[in-house]
Structure formats: structure tokens, C-alpha cells
Amino acid sequence: MITLTGGRTTRMQDAIRILMLLDAAAEPLAEAPTEPALSTAVGVVRTQIRLQKLDFWVRNPDYLANELLNDFENGDRDPTLLMLAEQILDSEEPELRRYPMLRYLFGAYEQLDDALAILRQADLVVRRLRGAPGHITQHDYYLLEQGRAKVSETAQKYPALDWYSARSKLVVALADGIGATQLKDRQYLQEEYLNTPHGFRIPSITDRARNRLSDLRLDGTIKDVG
């Protein structure tokens, strides 16, 4: 059984998280693939950048909550956004379920080959590369029928792991209509993220996000919304 504690992840944790994220983020296929290995594909996530950026928000609840506050303040002040941010920041989730990622050339990055190998071996996910050897232009991640079924089965057997699914759905909703490059640019707006040297892990912004929430409470914003 997997325990949800902050820090470094295991290969199996990565596999489960990525499977549930792909299940939440996969777009329906425009046409049935002709390749036999993809005959049971039910959806696809296109580009590694998009998958990594979505994964960053799943792995970093503090940054996710901060983005929810951004959308709340910059939009129509939807109370649901505020409620979701409060649920995260008023709990120990930022400490217990935060898995830092490296700052790389295109932003937050973590090696996913081991996790994807587990998913492929179990016939849950297939990754396909576009381009030529030495010049890969795109990664496509296909979710298979068995993968979608495994997500449902896992949620029923291990309720604690359904957190991954719930957070994945929230992250995908937050990123709705935003392209991979826009996601990257949005995450770069956070100074801690932007200023992390390449090859180092992106630091937490939990204290800043909680202080921001406190300020909203002090100025009466939350009471007015409620």
C-alpha cells in the first residue's frame, strides 16, 4: 500500500499519479488509431510539456492553491475557487503531499520514464514519440481502456489514492483552454519558480500562499463572498 507523505516519490507512486492525471487530462481521439498497440486507446495527452506542467500542480498543492487564489481575484470571484484554496491551505496537504520538481530548461520537470514503463508493461498507457532519432519533436501519451478501468478499480479498492484523481481533475479544470506553452508561462510568473537555478528543486510557497489567504480574510473579502 502506498502512503501519501511529502518528499521524494517512488516509482509506483509516480505511476499511479501519472495514470490518474492522464485519465483526467486525456482528450478524446479525433479518429481511431490504426496502430494495433493503440487499438484500445480512449484518449491522449499531447506534449510532454503539458503533462509536466499539469503534474507540477498535482505535486505542489501550495502552487495549486495560489493559482486558485489568482483565478478568484482576477475573475468573477467565484466562491468555489476560494473554498478549494482554503481546503488546501487550511490543512497539512502542502506539507504532507508536496513532491518538489526540478527546474529545467522548460520549467518544472521530473523524469517519468520509469513510471511510464510500469504503465506500459501493464497495458495501461502507451507513449508515442514524433520526430526522428535525436530530434524528438513531441511526446503523445495514449490512455488505454485498461488504464481507465484501472483508475476506477484503484479508487474503489484504495480510497486514499482517490486524492490523486480528485487533484488531477481540479488541475485539469484549472488549465482548461490553456495550451502547454501558456501553462509554462503562467508558472514562470511565480518568482520562486522563475528564480530557481536549473537542476535544483523548486521551493515551496506555502507560507506566502497562506499569508495571502489570511490577507483576504482580514480585508473582509471572504466574508463578503460568503
Rank of each mutant, 00 (worst) to 15 (best):
L183F: 06
D219V: 12
I222Q: 02
V126I: 14
M1N: 00
I16H: 01
N66L: 06
A122T: 04
F106C: 06
G107W: 01
Y142H: 01
G177V: 02
A32W: 15
D185S: 14
K53S: 04
A26K: 03
H198P: 07
L38F: 05
S204Y: 02
P61C: 10
L216V: 09
M12Y: 12
I205W: 05
Q52F: 06
L96D: 15
G147K: 00
G177E: 08
R128T: 12
T154F: 08
E93T: 14
L143Y: 03
Y142F: 11
V171W: 00
A26C: 10
P61K: 05
M83T: 12
R120G: 05
Q182L: 13
P79Q: 10
Y158I: 13
P36M: 14
A37W: 05
H198Q: 14
P159M: 08
L4T: 04
E27D: 12
A209L: 04
R98T: 10
E73L: 15
A160T: 13
T137V: 11
E67A: 12
Q87H: 15
P159A: 09
P133T: 08
E35R: 13
L81G: 03
P159G: 00
Q146W: 07
L161T: 02
T221I: 11
I2F: 01
G177N: 07
T9C: 10
L54D: 04
R59A: 02
L116S: 03
L82Q: 00
N211S: 11
R120W: 08
A115N: 01
Q146D: 11
V44T: 02
S168E: 06
T5F: 08
D207Y: 11
L170K: 09
D123N: 11
E27A: 09
D185F: 00
A25E: 02
F56D: 01
Y188A: 12
A155T: 10
R210M: 09
E27M: 12
T3G: 03
H198E: 14
R128W: 03
E27C: 09
D224H: 14
E92A: 13
D207M: 12
D78S: 08
D219N: 14
F106Y: 15
D76Q: 13
T137K: 09
L102W: 07
P28A: 13
N70W: 12
G7M: 07
D123K: 06
P33Y: 12
E31M: 13
Q111W: 10
E110V: 15
A32G: 09
L64A: 09
H135G: 01
D219S: 10
Y99T: 04
L218T: 13
S214F: 10
S204K: 01
V126H: 00
A175M: 08
Q146V: 03
A155H: 04
L105G: 07
E153D: 14
D219A: 10
L218W: 11
G199S: 07
A115V: 00
V42L: 15
K157A: 15
K184M: 08
Q52W: 06
